[in-house]
Write a protein that binds this DNA or RNA. Structure first.
Length: 592
RNA sequence: GACCCCGUAGCUCAGCUGGAUAGAGCACCCGCCUUCUAAGCGGGUGGUCACAGGUUCGAAUCCUGUCGGGGUCGCCA
């Protein structure tokens, strides 16, 4: 139940009446008319911009429309006052029972409070992580993973039918390269070469992956196959089996790490399988039939001309017709499909599976790739498909202000597993969501575990834990009382009269619209800020009891007011838990 | 050279898709523990929303340009 939505439709129907009566011209567009909490609580409970929105199309000054509306709005149920302010805002004051009703909704719905129907059960595909199976995931992947997972949860909460998907890049040159590196490590494990030999090969660029994480993989290979591959010289003989072995090994690690992060994808799509099933050929044939491709020559790239550039005719996608800068190549000089060609097939595959609403989470270094995939989706769906690519910006890792050195060459990068081991998955997940995806994020091991207001994870968890503490005391003070959510819903909430108590209820009443707004904007981080605000209001209320003893939640001689306040405390906990559930974070019962 | 992201208090960041006097935390100053966890709370100081134009009842938000920071730039994935 979204109170603001309820009032928006009531306001709409008042305007509708005025149109029917001829006081306003018929057919006015009301989509931009909003009912929202005013910036200043002192202005009232609900503000609407209706008069200002309608002024121009109605051909009347905003104040005139506002005056007319105010008369009608005053008569609406639950409205105690309506007034015009500023340039034409209408502020409504409503009966406090509305907020008390919201509190009851929270108790009745539990962590489902805030669930919305705006998604209309429309299928949405959220593709995230999709890290190459060439090594363990690092901090950057962790951020993308958390953003994608939380966004998927958020969209599900908002009523979309969400599929969480992972694209495995198990075809192409990179997996061949990792197979070459694995072979070196394999030889090392069998004592045929030394660690220095491996290092040398890396420096001579004979292999590209020098990380020691390949050693366990090589050991597993040696255990399975013995020295079977030592004397096999023909690339075509050993690369495919070793590549498959590595991919399988790495994907197992990836899945384990994701599980440790609390992430489970519904669908894993393999680029290799897509290729083998002929999906790329099919997709390109489809494009060709639609006249979306041609053979042509590209200009050399400006600013950074590759040494080996030579103009040649190649198969291109008419990306410029769909908003891209240049037409994009589909075939390499070797005759193999480009990564982009495979990606077109992959996105077409998603569409063929019924998804027209797609979200991809990528690292910011892939920003240059966005337009061409958007163009491709537009082309293959005739404009029907929607793709939103969220770029996860850089994460910088610190320890108490000191940057943690990362070098991919030396293999000393911070892995996702490092983060989880160091501070726990709940902290990682929450912190990753305290910034919008396109802003850089600083992750400081020391600060994210600090117990202070500066640390949002702690601050929100502390609010929840404090609430639980009150309940532990209440169970003693009122032994035998029904403190279940259902029992508390029956409390006499009219006893909640303090402005700060009303304020907390008001904040909880805006949780559903916060969820909707965040879902529509694909911005899960908004929930982090909401939770922080709610926690703050709760801590303030708690502390008010320091000065005013009569405001403490538990009053031994007044069970009725105590139960009403317990209902409030519980509801705050439930709303926080509802937000944490979207984030995939467990609320804590007690701070230790 | 082109494209993408960013520029808001001394610092780190919000700003609910165009609304009212731009908000938090940190830092700095002043208060609050015989108390359900003071791991907290209240108050104060602090802003030309990078800059210049434009769009309209109204712009931090949308458009154009400039400056500054980051990223990317056929046949890598």
């Amino acid at each position: 139940m979204n109170i603001f939505q309820t009032f928006k439709s009531r306001i709409d129907s008042v305007i509708g009446d005025l149109m029917t009566e001829g006081a306003l011209p018929a057919g006015l567009d009301l989509t931009r008319v909003a009912a929202e909490p005013p910036r200043e609580a002192s202005h009232g409970d609900i503000a609407t911009n209706a008069a200002m929105i309608l002024a121009k199309p109605a051909g009347k000054p905003p104040r005139a429309i506002a005056d007319m509306l105010v008369e009608r709005l005053k008569k609406l149920p639950d409205v105690t006052d309506a007034s015009v302010a500023g340039p034409g805002f209408i502020n409504l004051k409503i009966n406090d029972d509305i907020w008390r009703g919201a509190l009851r909704d929270v108790l009745a719905e539990g962590v489902s409070y805030g669930d919305a129907a705006i998604g209309g059960n429309v299928p949405v595909n959220v593709e995230y992580v999709s890290a190459n199976p060439t090594g363990p995931m690092h901090v950057g992947h962790a951020r993308g993973a958390v953003i994608g997972d939380a966004l998927a949860n958020l969209l599900a909460k908002a009523g979309y039918k969400v599929t969480k998907e992972y694209y495995i890049n198990d075809a192409g040159g990179q997996v061949d390269n990792v197979a070459r590196a694995l072979r070196m490590r394999y030889l090392q494990v069998l004592g045929k070469v030394t660690a220095d030999d491996v290092k040398g090969a890396l420096e001579r660029k004979e292999i590209q992956y020098g990380g020691e994480y390949l050693i366990p993989c090589a050991e597993a290979l040696a255990k399975r196959d013995g020295d079977k591959w030592v004397n096999v010289a023909d690339d075509a003989q050993w690369i495919p089996p070793l590549r498959d072995f590595t991919v399988e090994f790495m994907m197992r690690i990836v899945k384990e790490d994701l599980a440790a992060m609390g992430i489970k994808h519904d669908v894993f799509t393999s680029e290799k399988k897509l290729t083998q099933a002929g999906k790329i050929d099919d997709a390109l044939k489809f494009m060709d039939e639609k006249g979306l491709t041609y053979t042509g020559v590209l200009e050399p790239p400006k600013g950074k001309t590759p040494d080996d550039y030579e103009p040649r005719p190649q198969l291109l996608f008419k990306a410029t017709e769909f908003g891209d800068e240049i037409d994009r190549p589909l075939k390499k000089s070797s005759g193999a499909w480009t990564y982009f060609a495979a990606d077109i097939a992959y996105h077409k595959d998603k569409v063929d599976r019924g998804f027209f609403d797609l979200v991809n989470i990528w690292g910011a270094d892939h920003g240059g790739y966005v337009k061409r995939v958007e163009a491709a989706l537009k082309a293959i769906t005739g404009g029907r498909g929607k793709l939103d690519v969220l770029l996860a910006q850089m994460v910088r890792v610190f320890n108490n202000g000191e940057p943690v050195k990362m070098s991919k060459r030396a293999g000393t990068f911070v892995t996702m597993r490092d983060l989880i081991d160091e501070v726990g998955k709940d902290v990682v997940r929450f912190i990753m969501l305290t910034r919008k995806n396109d802003a850089p994020l600083d992750f400081d091991y020391a600060k994210v575990t600090e117990k202070s207001r500066e640390n949002p994870v702690f601050y929100v968890q502390y609010a929840y834990a404090r609430g639980r503490s009150v309940f532990r005391h209440a169970a003693e003070m009122f032994a035998g009382a029904d403190l279940s959510d259902k029992g508390l819903a029956a409390a006499n909430l009219a006893r909640l009269t303090d402005p700060d108590e009303i304020g907390v209820m008001r904040l909880m009443a805006s949780w559903p619209r916060t969820v909707e707004g965040a879902a529509l904007a694909h911005e899960p981080h908004r929930l982090a800020f909401y939770m922080y605000d709610l926690a703050s209001a709760f801590h303030a209320l708690w502390n008010k009891g320091n000065d005013a003893v009569e405001l403490r939640f538990l009053q031994a001689d007044d069970k009725e007011v105590s139960l009403a306040r317990l209902a409030l405390v519980r509801a705050v906990g439930l709303v926080i838990a509802s937000g944490l559930a979207v984030f995939g974070v467990e609320p804590v019962e007690e701070m230790r």
